[in-house]
Each structure stands twice: as structure tokens, then as C-alpha cells.
Design a protein around this nucleic acid. Structure first.
Length: 470
RNA sequence: GGCACCGUAGCCAAGUGGUAAGGCAGGAGACUGCAAAUCUCUCAUCGUCGGUUCGAUUCCGACCGGUGCCUCCA
């Protein structure tokens, strides 16, 4: 197998990757803030992380993944206050929706989904360590801040020149108590509205709540240890979120926080970043209503490299729906055929080599998909010829299974409805009779009736086959 | 203003210093009663202009166009 390589944002280069202990990859992925359902842009990142997870497992490594759920922050408190509910009442259903969406998209479950509110003690402990190390201070507003002037490494990940005058930058207006404008909150003093919705805890610095950045550091290190193998997230998190995580974690432990930082690019719509404030978001639910399958959406996302921006368009989505239809038909054929030939065996070997190489090369899913389609084509051609070698078929099935275990782009057939199947069979029998009598008008009417129920049929030398197409 | 990234056929997209994977759509054909599926054939000179080179889409520069980040943000 070729070396497994990943782009590391820390060094801005592609590097060979292996877990520090040689066996288990400790992976931390920044999860959603659960104040309303995640949109497709968020899910592009989660799908990228799913690809990463599956790619690592393809290599034979175990993965211990943490995806946090940020269930206390400014937006959550604001929303809870507006609705007059506690933050828990607000976030619980959103967490459920998140898991349901992930399941629909076939995103493999992480080993841990820690909620920030369950790790308050660990967060307080982290702030204490920072305080005793002299890098945290309590300001006049009773909040505790991290002093970036005490952490010379600050800015290494994002390479932002902290002294630059950012004339076009959005400037924060609500923090006055900090010693330095770039310092960030570790612990925020509680306000009355925080107390009202259950977003305040006791601490050595008084009632308050954790800062956003602190949450990830505390949960990551508590569950996975002080040095992670990989920390992943969307590119927008690079600054300040990941920069601040590095600062807090490393200032506390004196150890590197993460060996690899991996960032997924954005999903764009109408030429702009998909974001609620732009007003161009769509959700998993929206797509499901449009009849876009999980397989199609996965194909769409994986058809562009994760470090390249991807534009969501109806035309591109249609292409993925059709592409995945072809993969599904092929998958059915692979299950149906009885034997293969030398060409099939060769196609299987090529697929394994090409797709594995592509996925090992910084998760080049588009190239892997290309290899998969070349395999589909070569295999179809092989099946159209004669074949009598069951072992060739077994190799083809195995190769396809292995690569699809990473991409997971075969659409569901959803044909376990016995009643429907019975009706379809009876219709097909009626049509066969009509065809035998050369009553093609009647035969075509049956086919039309089936199509209206979402059933497509194919006449073959071995009889008529049917499949559900929607 | 600062820091990055991107610009390959109608659409999506991979890729390489030596004349461009793959998918969708389109065209022609085989198969079919007709379809569907599948197969065969077909469909680009890689934003523009310079430079380096025997040779550049691939390296360098300028320009044009697009996107993101610069403390809400996947």
C-alpha cells in the first residue's frame, strides 16, 4: 500500500501520516453549535471528516473520534432567552435532528459526542492551569482572558500578523475589559440572562460560563489526551478558534496540541459561502424533499477535493443523482451475475490499486470516484462478454465493496415492501402476457402505470427485471 | 488594506514539463416490438499576455475574473 499522506495546515504541506501509537488515530472534529439544524455547508465538513475517518480505517488503523456538541454559547443563550426556555430544552431536539441527519447521510458515528455542558469542571481545571502558568488573567468585567502576549507562538497556524492594521476587518465592539484586543475569553462572567436559561456555573472566578474555544480544548484533551493525532474542522475555524485552542492547550500542557490540522473548504451557493447570514442555506431536510438521496449527496460532495471550494447547483446535483444511479445499477448487476472473466479480474485489481492510491493521497476522492467509474465500465463490458470464472467475480465484488466502504455512494433500493413487490410482479406478468400476444399498446400501458408508482422495468433475455427509482 | 486559495469542454471535475482521468448533458450506432440498462464511436488545447525551456495546461511574472479569512461562523 502506498504511504498515507495528508495536508497539514500547520506546515502547509502534504506529509506522511500515521497515528502516534501506530494503531489508533485520535481524531478530534469540531462539531455543530446546536441552536438550529446544521445546513449543507456544515455537512460538507462533516462529510469530509467522514471520508477522513473511513480513509484512515481503510488503512487498517482504528479511529477514536470525538465530535463535540457546543450546547452553550451566545447564540444558544440568545435563542433560549427569546423563547423563554432553558438552553437544555432548546438544544436537546436540535441534537436529535443532528444525529438523524448524520445517519441519513451515512456519516459514521464518532466514538464520543461530548456536550460542552457536561465538561464544565474540566474546563474550569484548564483555566486554573492557565492561571497558575501566568497566561490567564481576570479582568475588570469579572471574566477571565487568555493573554496572547504570553504565548509567542500565537498565529502560527493562521499566519496572521497580529500587528497588522485590519482596515477592512470586522471589528468586535463588545469587549472593553481585555488588556489586549486579541485576548480571548476563557471564562465569561454570568449575566442575568445566562442565569435565567441555565447557562451559568460556579467557578473560582464567580458565576459564569466557558468561552467557546475553551470547550474544545478541554473536551479534546480529557477524552483523547494532550496531543491529538488529527484535529479537523472547517477552514473558517482556523482563525481564531483553532489558533486559540492551540494557545490554551499548549500553554497549559507545554506539549503540541495536535500533530495534524486538517481543514475542509466551504460549500458555496450562488457564488457565495453558504451561511445563515448570507441567507443562502439549505438543509438536509430540503434536499430530502427534493428527492436527493444520501448516495447522491455524498457523490456530489466527494466529486470535488475537500480542500477546494464546491458550488452547490441543481445541475451538479442532477449529475450526481444520475451518476449514482449508474453505480446502483452496477451494484445490482454485481450481485446478480454468476461468474466473470480475466478482464473483470483485471478491472478489480486496477480499481483497488488506483482508488487506494487516490484516497491515500490526501483523500483524493474525485480521483477515487474516477477509478470507480472506470471499474464500472470495464466490468460491464466484461459481463457483456462471456465469463465462467467465479473467482474473478468474487474479486470484483470484494474490490467494489472495499472502495464503496469508503465512499458509500450506492443508493438504497428500498424494495423490501412485500405488498408493493407482489403488485409489481402481477403487473409484470400481465405485461408479459400482453407482449406475448403482441399487444404492445396494453404492454406499454402497464409499464406506464408502473412508472407512475416509481417502478422502472427492464426487459432482458432472462425475463423482465424491475427496480424502484424513487 | 493584510493573508490565502481558485480559474481545465454546456455543467461538475482529476491531472501531468513532452501534446488532457472520470461523471452528467449532447450527437451517431448496436441491442429492444418500443423502451430501459449496457456496449461502441463522438464531443476541450487547459482565464489573458509575457518569460524560462528543445518543449508548458503543468514553472516564473504581470494582468483580468471569482471565493474565503482578518475574533458570530463548518
Amino acid at each position: 500500500m502506498p504511504e498515507f499522506r495528508l495536508y497539514n495546515s500547520l506546515t502547509r504541506s502534504i506529509e506522511p501520516f500515521a497515528p502516534a501509537d501506530g494503531a489508533t488515530v485520535r481524531l478530534y472534529t469540531c462539531g455543530p453549535t446546536v441552536y438550529n439544524p446544521a445546513h449543507l455547508g456544515n455537512f460538507r465538513t462533516f462529510l469530509f471528516e467522514d471520508l477522513l475517518r473511513r480513509g484512515l480505517r481503510m488503512r487498517g488503523w482504528a479511529v477514536e473520534q470525538v465530535m463535540n456538541l457546543t450546547d452553550v454559547d451566545d447564540k444558544i443563550i440568545k435563542r433560549a432567552t427569546e423563547r423563554g426556555v432553558s438552553i437544555t430544552e432548546l438544544t436537546n431536539p436540535v441534537v436529535e435532528t443532528f444525529h438523524a441527519d448524520c445517519e441519513f447521510l451515512r456519516i459514521q458515528r464518532a466514538e464520543h459526542y461530548p456536550r460542552a455542558t457536561a465538561y464544565i469542571n474540566e474546563m474550569i481545571d484548564l483555566v486554573k492551569r492557565l492561571e497558575s502558568n501566568g497566561v490567564a488573567y481576570k479582568a475588570d468585567d469579572e471574566s477571565v482572558y487568555f493573554a496572547i502576549s504570553k504565548f509567542p507562538e500565537y498565529g502560527r497556524l493562521s499566519r496572521l500578523d497580529t500587528r497588522e492594521i485590519r482596515s477592512g476587518a470586522r471589528v468586535s465592539q463588545d469587549d472593553y475589559a481585555k488588556e489586549n484586543a486579541q485576548d480571548f475569553a476563557l471564562w465569561k462572567a454570568a449575566k442575568p440572562e445566562d442565569e435565567a436559561c441555565g447557562a451559568a456555573w460556579d467557578s473560582p472566578w464567580g458565576r459564569g460560563r466557558p468561552g467557546w474555544h475553551l470547550e474544545c480544548s478541554a473536551m479534546a484533551m480529557t477524552i483523547l489526551g494532550e496531543t491529538l493525532d488529527i484535529h479537523a474542522g472547517g477552514v473558517d475555524l482556523m482563525f481564531p478558534h483553532h489558533e486559540d485552542e492551540i494557545a490554551q492547550s499548549e500553554a497549559a500542557t507545554g506539549k503540541p496540541f495536535a500533530r495534524f490540522w486538517c481543514h475542509g473548504e466551504f460549500l458555496l451557493t450562488d457564488g457565495a459561502k453558504m451561511a445563515k447570514r448570507v441567507g443562502n442555506v439549505s438543509t438536509v431536510a430540503d434536499l430530502r424533499e427534493q428527492g436527493v438521496s444520501a448516495a447522491a449527496l455524498r457523490h456530489f460532495v466527494f466529486s470535488t477535493h475537500y480542500r477546494k471550494q464546491l458550488n452547490l447547483s441543481g445541475e451538479a446535483l442532477e449529475a450526481s443523482i444520475e451518476a449514482v444511479r449508474r453505480v446502483g445499477d452496477f451494484s445490482d448487476r454485481l450481485a446478480r451475475e454468476r461468474a466473470g472473466n480475466a478482464a473483470l479480474a483485471e478491472a478489480a485489481d486496477t480499481l483497488l490499486i488506483e482508488a487506494t492510491a487516490a484516497l491515500s493521497d490526501d483523500l483524493n476522492a474525485p480521483r477515487a470516484i474516477g477509478a470507480l467509474f472506470e471499474f464500472v465500465h470495464a466490468s460491464n463490458r466484461a459481463f457483456d462478454e462471456t465469463g465462467s470464472d467465479p473467482s474473478a467475480l468474487a474479486r470484483a465484488r470484494d474490490a467494489f465493496r472495499q472502495i464503496n466502504a469508503v465512499l458509500d455512494i450506492v443508493p438504497d433500493r428500498g424494495t423490501d415492501d412485500a405488498e408493493l413487490a407482489g403488485w409489481v410482479e402481477s403487473q409484470i406478468a400481465a405485461r408479459s402476457t400482453a407482449r406475448a400476444n403482441r399487444d404492445f399498446v396494453q404492454a406499454d400501458e402497464v409499464r406506464k402505470a408502473l412508472e407512475e408508482k416509481g417502478i422502472a422495468i427492464e426487459d432482458t433475455p432472462d425475463g423482465t427485471r424491475w427496480k424502484k427509482i424513487r
